[in-house]
Amino acid sequence: MEYALSESLEDYLMGIFIVSKQNKVVRLKDIAKERQVKLPSVVNALKELAEKGLISHERYSYVTFTDKGLNEAKKLYDRHKTVFKFLYEILGVTEFIAEKDAHRMEHDLTASTLDLLTKFTEFMEMSSKRGESRFPEQFKYFMETGKFPEIKSKEGGIMEKTKEKPLSELKRGESGKIVRIKKGIGALKGRLLTMGAVPGTVVRIKKVAPLGDPIDILILGYHLSLRKEEAEKIIVQEI
């Protein structure tokens, strides 16, 4: 960056971005609400951002990003997301604190540290999704018991300690990571696996049919409907 934004301006820029994601147009009062500040401070901040060519804002109209500003805002937002993910998903900090600390860390850490943190988070995500490493589970086990887990098999030992349940027990809007498909269900197992329900894949319950069954899950970016009967055969770990 050839220009440095102050911490507060960065937060404003990101705040505007978040508001723009939620609403069609960005109003001053929405920004004030998102940043939890008073309107005059917003006006000041907007003036500064406009001077830097990041947003445009005429009086009495909505706030819009310039191309440069949008890029910058996205970058900030992504950075915030990864730091948040690192705290929340990998370390297991509570959501509220993760949010708060992410705001602090993203400004204070050196760029190269942040970069490595981002890479590390990505790596952990991939490795657990591909089911090749059990670092996240092992770490959870370590946090819970203070012991390093002894693993022999993928299905035994540490898995019992984390929260496993059949997919059918998740509610609408909840997500889970697939641990395994139950055995002894014949061809259904292969069918589910080939449709992408392999261990490590994250699924989310999107909808429940009007009569309460079947359910619609989001998996690998597409919608799949299963009866609760079938969902019961998929063991997930709550996330």
Partner: peptide, 9 residues
């Protein structure tokens, strides 16, 4: 028989 059905976009 079990239900495993895609809901296409």
């Amino acid at each position: 028989s079990p239900l495993v059905m895609e809901l296409p976009p």
